[in-house]
């Protein structure tokens, strides 16, 4: 805003205040305590032989570990996709004026949120015990097509159903909260323009609800990435199961758990970065100026251009030229 912010004072203005800043001795003490604790931890990590860092290094990129990572990622992506699509459908159903739809959605959420996901996983895996064959046909009448349940639902599909259907129940509540956070005036404005209910939802409400939906969904995705380790109970070889398989043979439990943890940590870190940029994208229009990305902040730190100081703030006078 102000062109003369560089310290030199134009004549006639009171001089800039130069005062002794408040000292914070507590911060120094705290800093020293933390530094000592960190040094102890580092010492333990390096010198405790049980960690066996050479074993960690050996298995970090081992074939079955890498394959496990692939399964974990695939399972995370697909079950989140299932959860998101199912969640939107369930949320719209719950908010529907049709009592049949809204109570069906309520019932679904009640069941799937009210039972542990571990139990649901095992349940889907044992579906073959409940119905040996699944068929499509006239209800209570002849079947046109039928297939053995175990062929139809291999372990991977059972895992996907368990995680995805459970996730849909949670996502439904997140999406519903997002939809309800959008001002009612938006619906009225869209309706007044002649937009149908469905189009209003798709074009006007959901894009705005996204701003509220994205952060918890990011958390859900990160949580899902870790929850996939539960499917090891139905013997699907994802990352954790791959690690377990190895240490059940060579008894190098700690190093392999470290390998697995390193990979989980790596993947969740990547997701966190992705979440940040996604949130930034959906924040457009709601803030006058988008917050700077970490990269921009970093650049502003090293390149001291005068423009970099109030980061990327759009002066309201010239919001035009970026069509």
């Amino acid at each position: 805003m102000n062109p003369s912010d560089k310290g030199e004072v134009p004549a006639g203005r009171p001089e800039t205040i130069k005062a002794v800043p408040v000292r914070h001795p507590g911060r120094w003490v705290g800093g020293i305590v933390v530094a000592v604790l960190a040094a102890m931890l580092l010492h333990a990590l390096i010198f405790n032989p049980v960690f066996e860092w050479d074993v960690v290094r050996k298995y970090l990129f081992q074939q079955s570990i890498l394959h496990g990572i692939g399964v974990t990622l695939e399972l995370t992506a697909l079950s989140m996709l299932m959860g998101a699509v199912g969640g939107v459908i369930l949320a719209v159903m719950r908010l529907s004026p049709n009592p049949l739809l809204s109570s069906a959605a309520w019932l679904y959420i009640w069941v799937f949120r009210g039972t542990p996901v571990l139990v649901q996983l095992v349940f889907w895996n044992f579906l073959g015990l409940l119905w040996q064959r699944l068929s499509i046909g006239i209800p209570f009448g002849p079947a046109f097509w039928s297939e053995s349940t175990n062929t139809l639902i291999p372990t991977f599909v059972a895992a996907l159903l368990g995680l995805g259907l459970n996730e849909a129940a949670y996502m439904a509540e997140i999406v519903r909260g997002g939809i309800q956070s959008v001002d009612e005036g938006q619906t009225e404005a869209a309706h007044a323009l002649g937009m149908s209910r469905a189009r209003t939802m798709r074009r006007i409400i959901l894009p705005q609800a996204m701003r509220v939906i994205i952060p918890p969904t990011g958390n859900e995705t990160i949580s899902m990435l870790k929850t996939t380790s539960l499917v090891s109970v139905i013997a699907l070889e994802e990352l954790f199961q791959a690690g377990q398989n190895i240490y059940s043979h060579n008894f190098k439990n700690i190093p392999l758990l470290i390998v697995v943890s390193i990979w989980y940590l790596f993947m969740t870190s990547i997701l966190t970065v992705g979440q940040y940029y996604l949130e930034r994208y959906f924040a457009r229009g709601s803030n006058r100026a988008l917050p700077a990305t970490p990269l921009q902040k970093l650049r502003a730190l090293f390149v001291r251009t005068p423009a970099a100081a109030p980061t990327a703030a759009l002066p309201p006078a010239e919001g035009a030229p970026h069509d």
């Binding site: 005036g185 404005a189 007044a192 323009l193 937009m195």
Partner: peptide, 19 residues
């Protein structure tokens, strides 16, 4: 909805689509 197409409305709180 089809009938509303022909009737414009302006609100006290504007209700522009912020996104």
């Amino acid at each position: 909805a089809r009938k509303r197409r022909d009737i414009g409305m302006v609100f006290q709180r504007f209700n522009l689509f912020p996104h």
